[in-house]
Computed example of a mutant assay.
Amino acid sequence: MPAPLPAPTFDAAAAYPEVNDLRKALDAADWPAVQAVFADRDADGRTLLVGAAGDQVGTEPFLRRVYDAHPTDQLAGTLLGNQLIRAGWRIRSAYRAQHVSRAQFEQFHEHLRRAERVLIDVTARYPDDAAAWTQRITLARGLQLGQNEARRRYDRLAREHPHHAPAQAALLQQLCPKWSGDWDRAFAFARECAQAAPAGAPNAVLVAEAHLERWLDFDTQRERTAYLRSTPVVDEVMQAGQRSVLHPDFVDRSGWVWVRSTFALMFSLTEQWPAAASQFTALGNLGTEYPWAYVDDAEGYTKYRAKAYAKGGQS
Rank of each mutant, 00 (worst) to 15 (best):
D296L: 04
L143C: 08
G287Q: 00
E18R: 13
D235Q: 10
A240E: 07
R92K: 13
R151K: 12
Q147I: 05
F263K: 00
V237L: 08
G45P: 02
Q314L: 08
G54N: 10
K311S: 09
A115H: 04
A124R: 15
P32T: 08
A201M: 06
V207F: 02
Q98A: 11
Q279K: 02
Y95C: 08
Q279A: 13
P248G: 06
F38Y: 10
I137S: 11
Q195G: 15
R102M: 07
G88I: 06
H161V: 03
E192W: 10
L145C: 07
W133F: 14
H70E: 13
A29S: 14
R41Q: 14
T270V: 05
A165K: 06
R86D: 11
D182C: 13
G255D: 03
E223A: 15
A204R: 07
T281V: 12
Y67A: 13
T288D: 02
P291F: 09
Q104N: 04
A7V: 02
S268C: 01
E192R: 12
T138A: 14
A69L: 12
V19W: 08
R253A: 15
G300R: 01
D68L: 14
G146S: 09
V251A: 12
T225W: 06
L286C: 02
L112T: 05
F218H: 15
S261N: 03
G241R: 00
P248M: 08
T225L: 08
Y304R: 01
A13R: 14
N20A: 15
M266E: 05
D219H: 13
D249Y: 06
D252R: 14
D129E: 10
A150G: 12
A97V: 11
V205P: 02
D128P: 05
T281A: 14
Q144P: 01
E236M: 02
N285S: 13
A165M: 11
W292K: 04
G54C: 10
S268N: 00
Y95W: 14
C176N: 10
V257T: 08
H211L: 06
S101F: 05
V295H: 10
D121A: 15
Q168A: 14
H111W: 03
A36R: 15
R113C: 06
V251C: 03
P162F: 11
W292P: 00
R214C: 11
E106W: 02
A208E: 03
Q174M: 13
L22E: 04
T138M: 12
L145S: 10
R114G: 04
A277Q: 03
A13D: 12
L265R: 00
L228S: 01
L216M: 12
K303L: 15
F10L: 15
V207W: 01
E60M: 07
F189S: 05
D11M: 09
S180P: 00
A276M: 06
V251E: 13
E149H: 11
S180L: 15
V100Q: 12
L48C: 05
A25G: 10
A240C: 04
G284D: 03
V245A: 03
A165W: 15
R46D: 07
G54V: 00
A186H: 02
V57L: 13
F62R: 11
H111C: 10
D235R: 13
A131T: 04
P32C: 09
D40M: 10
P202Y: 01
L175W: 00
P6G: 08
N148C: 06
A97M: 12
L269A: 05
P274M: 01
S278K: 05
A208M: 03
D11G: 09
